[in-house]
């Protein structure tokens, strides 16, 4: 049996901040088409890993291979164009812009446009803009946000802002989508509907998903494999059941029992 090359492969990833080693020779794979989950206690280095993959930070050491190509230390815009998009734990939308414009921004950056035609507002430039607006609207529709298209992004309720961030990330046409705590601040009902949405997005947009999450039920229901990180290093990886049964994981989350076995 041959295992296909993973979509994303992280090897020995390390990042220091001053004297603090936030990520410590961390290695893991994201299989193509999977919903891979990263879990770990607060401060374990999960978001730093996302920042390293998306080029917001440069790795101190280690390799990041995307579709077999090294991308570690590349500029964020190159990595986006290679096909990795992300959302943020603390939502970062273009607050003063409408929902539609938020999704339109990355669409416009992908388009080759004629500078002078755009400046003069020629019919062909307007046609291009109209078709991009339609595309943006379709993306909003597929996430159930079409009714909010003209509203200013920061007026949306929290849960919908998260969805809008996902829509904007999808507008960069990614093959790998990184979601940083997509269910943060959601109640159990909202979390369940988010789980359905994530599965739908994977099917519909044909993306592989890597997500960080604290809601264990979400991770255990939709993610496989699950990767556990603690103190910046890999603690365990495997199917949800394997991870749940791993004594190291239990210890990291709940502390070691007094009885000791």
């Amino acid at each position: 049996m041959t295992t296909p090359t993973p979509l994303l492969s992280v090897r020995g990833l390390t990042r220091d901040f001053g004297g603090i080693r936030a990520v410590d020779s961390f290695s893991f794979d994201v299989p193509e088409g999977s919903i891979t989950g990263i879990i770990g206690p607060n401060g374990a280095g999960k978001t730093t890993v996302f920042n390293l993959i998306t080029g917001v930070y440069r790795p101190t050491a280690g390799d990041i291979l995307f579709k077999g190509e090294p991308i570690g230390g590349h500029r964020p815009d190159r990595i986006v164009r290679a096909g990795i998009a992300r959302t943020f734990q603390n939502i970062r939308l273009f607050n003063r812009r409408s929902c539609l414009e938020n999704v339109l921004t990355p669409l416009l950056q992908r388009e080759k446009s004629n500078f002078f035609a755009a400046l003069a507002g020629t019919p062909s430039a307007r046609r291009t803009e109209r078709s991009l607006r339609e595309k943006a609207f379709d993306l909003l529709t597929s996430l159930g946000l079409d009714a909010f298209a003209p509203l200013q992004a920061n007026t949306l309720p929290y849960g919908l802002q998260r969805k809008l961030e996902i829509a904007r990330a999808l507008a960069t046409n990614p093959s790998l989508l990184l979601l940083d705590e997509p269910a943060a601040g959601m109640n159990p009902e909202e979390t369940r509907s988010l789980a359905r949405l994530i599965a739908e997005v994977r099917e519909k947009f044909n993306v592989t998903i890597l997500l960080i999450e604290h809601h264990m039920d979400l991770v255990m229901n939709i993610c496989s494999p699950v990767i556990v990180i603690n103190f910046g290093a890999l603690l365990a990886e495997g199917t949800p059941d394997e991870v749940r049964a791993n004594p190291d994981v239990v210890a990291a989350y709940l502390g070691k029992g007094r009885k000791g076995k």
Partner: peptide, 30 residues
């Protein structure tokens, strides 16, 4: 007109709002 209509102009407006986010939309910040 440049800021409101062209691709680069719109990227500038996105950068005004959030530079990191702007680069994650595929804009070369340099």
């Amino acid at each position: 007109l440049f800021i409101s209509r062209t691709r680069t102009g719109i990227a500038i407006r996105a950068g005004v709002s959030d530079m990191t986010m702007c680069s994650l939309m595929g804009v070369d910040l340099d």
